[in-house]
Design a protein around this nucleic acid. Structure first.
Lengths: 202, 202
DNA sequence: ACCTGAACACCGTTCAAGT
DNA sequence: ACCTGAACACCGTTCAAGT
């Protein structure tokens, strides 16, 4: 295990993120990053042991966007702020965002975000023994929702195909008037409201 | 757009699934699939237009495992059956499962599953206008949970690292005795119970 | 109808060498 | 301390050809 240089790591991650944002994740090759940084591909291996570690670095980069943690007033507001920031992050970096769910990488910033969620749930009155589970429940939904949006699982195309197949899908036929997703912001907000009712039953 | 042969599609998908299960997703190359089928890589292009379409075929293969849909009694039981089947599917095919969330592919089997969920929610008394949203809420959580398990987001390693970083994470320190995930089956069950309370408030 | 061979433009990564 | 060049063992895919 050689010691890695850190000096140009941020610069390299910037280049990698830019490539992913502009041309997608499969355009993100070591060679492309090197070219953007103005260096030979092999030079990158002084800063990251391999491509996997570079991708982990990219995940860290996204998480530090989430970490700031406004002082926030009520637990609902703090929890909502993180949820909306997560969704915004997915829209800003749709190619890289899936890596947050796909790669296990516990970064300091990631821990900070989880800690803020724990605190919000404690303030909401969730019993200590239930807090970690509820945190996983909420964060799993929020990340899954954001991922579904950017990966197209919720897209119009899906809905249309679904409708055209209505013949052998009776419930689809019955709900035909309601399948349209009109306003995703409103849907996300309604979902969060429902989850808050799990956290603190009214 | 040439017309594709279908004769050996199932055989090819079997080979692809086996490779992914045995050696992971990044070992799943056209060349590896071809070798397993006993054919030249180029022969595959008579059955799938490209690798992406082969992966879509793989997603379809997973979805048809979910589709059967037992007659089931209560709406809770039917919804629970699909949720547990989804989680089981992820554990059986951890490498391929993420593609379900990553790739937009609306297959007939996928529509069947969604239709069953719609029907369960209708039977639960959810207003028609809310059914599609609640279906997305539930399926997003279930798939996100299953994905988190197989991708290691919930793993012990994460928890340990989190604990060791407890210094600057006060809520973690306070909850130290409860971070342990002991029983994931129980957690999933508790989560489903909480979601059912959203569906039909007690 | 089904398959092959050769080729093209890519990959990540190792190793030895250069300043 | 930092970077390069050449090389290796891979990729997905096109094209023209073969039975």
């Amino acid at each position: 295990m050689r010691k890695l240089k850190t000096s140009r790591q941020p610069e390299i991650l910037d280049a990698a993120l830019a490539i992913a944002d502009e041309r997608g994740l499969e355009a993100l090759s070591m060679r492309a990053v090197a070219e953007r940084v103005g260096v030979t591909p092999m030079a990158l291996y002084g800063y990251f042991r391999n491509k996997d570690e570079l991708l982990d670095g990219l995940v860290g980069r996204l998480l530090d966007r989430l970490a700031p943690g406004d002082p926030g007033q009520t637990w609902q507001e703090r929890l909502g702020a993180i949820a909306w920031a997560t969704r915004r992050l997915a829209r800003e970096h749709p190619s890289v965002f899936p890596l947050l769910l796909l790669r296990t990488s516990v970064t300091p910033d990631g821990v900070q975000v989880v800690d803020q969620l724990y605190q919000a749930l404690l303030d909401a009155g969730v019993p200590e023994a239930d807090v970690p589970r509820i945190e996983r429940l909420v964060s799993t939904f929020v990340m899954g929702f954001a991922l579904s949006e950017v990966s197209g699982r919720f897209s119009d195309a899906s809905r249309d195909i679904r409708l055209s197949r209505g013949a052998d899908a009776p419930a689809h036929r019955r709900l035909a008037g309601h399948l349209t997703p009109d306003d995703w912001d409103a849907e996300f907000e309604a979902d969060l409201a429902d989850l808050m009712r799990i956290i603190r039953p009214v």
